[in-house]
Design a protein around this nucleic acid. Structure first.
Length: 573
DNA sequence: GCCGTTTTCGGCCCGACTGTTTTCAGTCG
């Protein structure tokens, strides 16, 4: 069983936790923590990278030492440093870091004073009232700890899908915008960076002095608990368990605050370092030269002062955007208006809710030029998948409709299953009648990495294979992606002239951001599709665009930004 | 432990809020 990136990241993070609890050099701790984050954010498996002879120390934040440690984990499944730490102290202590309000220092104190090592120990001590007697702790802290242990047990700390967060954000923004004196209001954080999930919402507001917006915030109907409340910053938890931070800053600081609260943390640190190089200080209140504010009102001004062009929020992950900005090589990211049509739409003939006509009407309303009807193939019996006869019937229906439509085209397609042996679920003489195919894996998710990869590669050898649908099969927070060698898949796609879908459904977002970047780097074109089942789903496109932007994709990397004529040309194999 | 457009040594982002304290450490983002 190969060691996955996630396992390596876990080892590095655990080491960071234990070193921190031990009171080690905080910068050494940070190095391990950063390395864990770097590894978990890689699109390729570290094991493969090592096999390919890649030098891990070329990754930012990973030097010779950490590269060696990562290699040890990959090759032996263990890390001597962690084993040594294990002999010195209980490893379970690192689990306590998940308790909000407890950090390394206080965990060390609780361990020393009360011999607490596990969550159970902690809960018991809090219940017995032993924690409040420890110096530096008190009644409130003890109560908070008990609540947090229970929260952790209920596994409520899961990240929230972007589409869900959007609903809460919109209602809350509406509520806050009604406060007197509010000028700017923006949801920042990972929400603005369009991450597929968010841990919390960060809302930034500028307003007139003496505005009641902060009290309006903590009194919002949906607030379950006020975690902290100050003049410029408050934190609440909504009934849904989503945490929301509100920051209020003066207008002269809006841009710098927006930059700061949009993050990512790593991006901010990198930008601040550049500011320091230029003898400037950057914080959420502005860019300062000798205590004089020289920028801050807009993000553009802040970037300009540190010598950078504006960097789109989706790129701000410290994954190379700073270097690209310095060289003036930032991508011109795809925007929603670039999208000319949707190539993965279901109708009521299978598991969708609407007729082709209804979908056409909805698509035209969104100013599209075309859609592709891609219902399921026969194997997906739960969705009443189409038989060859059904497909032919639908083709006739579409031809008939196209004859009556002006300045809009319905493309004939199918979402055809890739069977276990790599064949497609419909015969070639049916597939050849279609404009395109979306080929998807809907079964046998558990195949080994090599068999799953071969299955898809074999399918791509079929000359009627056009687009690989939701390429990893993952469902966010629900189902892990199936094991597949994405680099090999992309190599095959490029070789055979196939495309990869970025499924824009907010439960999928598959390809993910790192894979989008990988596709770009490998020269594989993608399709942004919504997998629409009801007309409103067409609006999921914005999530797909967000994901694509996070993966550095430009309009030219996305084939459904093309006119119908150009699209048809590119679909030919 | 990492890193370098002054550096291979000596730095490493920076501020708000809380709780427990009498001036601040710890935590968080």
């Amino acid at each position: 069983m190969p060691v996955q990136n996630n396992d390596i990241a876990k080892v590095l993070t655990t080491v960071a936790d234990l070193l921190e609890i031990k009171g080690e050099n905080p910068f050494r701790v940070r190095a391990y923590r950063n390395a864990g984050r770097t590894v978990s954010g890689l699109s390729r498996s570290v094991g493969e990278m090592i096999e390919d002879g890649r030098d891990l120390s070329r990754l930012s934040g990973i030097g010779a030492d950490l590269a060696g440690k990562i290699r040890e984990v990959v090759e032996t499944g263990r890390l001597t440093l962690l084993e040594n730490l294990r002999n010195e102290m209980p490893v379970e202590l690192s689990n306590l870091m998940a308790i909000s309000g407890l950090g390394a220092t206080r965990i060390a104190i609780l361990n020393k004073e009360l011999d607490i090592t596990t969550l159970d120990d902690l809960e018991e001590a809090a219940r017995d009232g032993r924690i409040e007697d420890v110096e530096g702790f008190g009644k409130k802290t003890e109560k908070k700890i008990l609540e947090e242990v229970q929260r952790l047990r209920q596994e409520k700390q899961q990240r929230t899908k972007l589409a869900v967060a959007e609903q809460y954000a919109k209602s809350l923004v509406d509520h806050l915008a009604k406060a007197e004196g509010v000028k700017d209001i923006m949801v920042a954080g990972s929400y603005r960076r369009r991450r597929e999930t968010v841990r919390d919402l960060d809302i930034l507001i500028t307003c007139r002095r003496g505005s009641e917006v902060m009290s309006r915030f903590v009194k919002y109907d949906d607030v379950d608990e006020v975690i902290s409340q100050g003049k410029t910053k408050s934190t609440v938890r909504l009934r849904s368990d989503l945490q929301v931070d509100l920051r209020v800053v003066p207008q002269v600081s809006y841009g710098s605050a927006l930059l700061y609260f949009t993050g990512s943390k790593e991006h901010n640190i990198a930008v601040r370092k550049i500011a320091i190089e230029k003898k400037l200080k950057l914080n959420e209140y502005g860019v300062f030269k000798d205590d004089e504010r020289v920028a801050g009102r807009t993000e553009e001004q802040v970037y300009e002062k540190v010598g950078l062009p504006f960097i789109d929020p989706e790129l701000r992950e410290n994954r190379g955007e700073i270097e690209a900005a310095r060289k003036n090589e930032l991508p011109r990211l795809v925007v929603p208006q670039d999208i000319r049509g949707d190539l993965h739409v279901h109708t009521k003939r299978t598991d969708g809710r609407h007729t082709i006509e209804e979908l056409v009407k909805a698509a035209r309303k969104r100013r599209y030029d075309y859609i592709a009807i891609a219902d399921h193939s026969k194997r997906v019996t739960v969705a009443h998948g189409l038989t060859p006869r059904d497909v032919r019937q639908q083709i006739e229906e579409i031809d008939d409709l196209n004859g009556r439509l002006q300045e809009f085209t319905v493309l004939k397609a199918i979402e055809v299953d890739i069977l276990e042996d790599g064949s497609l679920d419909l015969p070639d003489d049916v597939l050849k009648e279609l404009d395109l195919t979306v080929c998807s894996v809907h079964s046998k998710f558990g195949l080994s990495r090599s068999r799953q990869t071969d299955r898809i590669r074999r399918a791509m050898e079929n000359r009627y294979f056009t687009i690989l649908g939701h390429p990893t099969g993952r469902m966010i927070n629900e189902r892990e992606p199936y094991e597949v060698d994405m680099e090999a898949i992309m190599t095959a796609a490029k070789d055979k002239g196939c495309f990869l879908e970025v499924n824009a459904h907010p439960d999928r977002l598959d390809l993910n951001d790192a894979h989008c970047k990988m596709a770009k780097d490998m020269g594989v074109k993608v399709v942004l599709s919504t997998d629409t089942h009801r007309v409103d789903d067409l609006d999921f496109m914005r999530f797909g665009v967000g994901q694509a932007r996070r993966g550095w994709l430009e309009a030219d990397d996305v084939i459904n930004t093309n006119s119908l004529k150009e699209l048809k040309r590119r679909l030919k194999r």
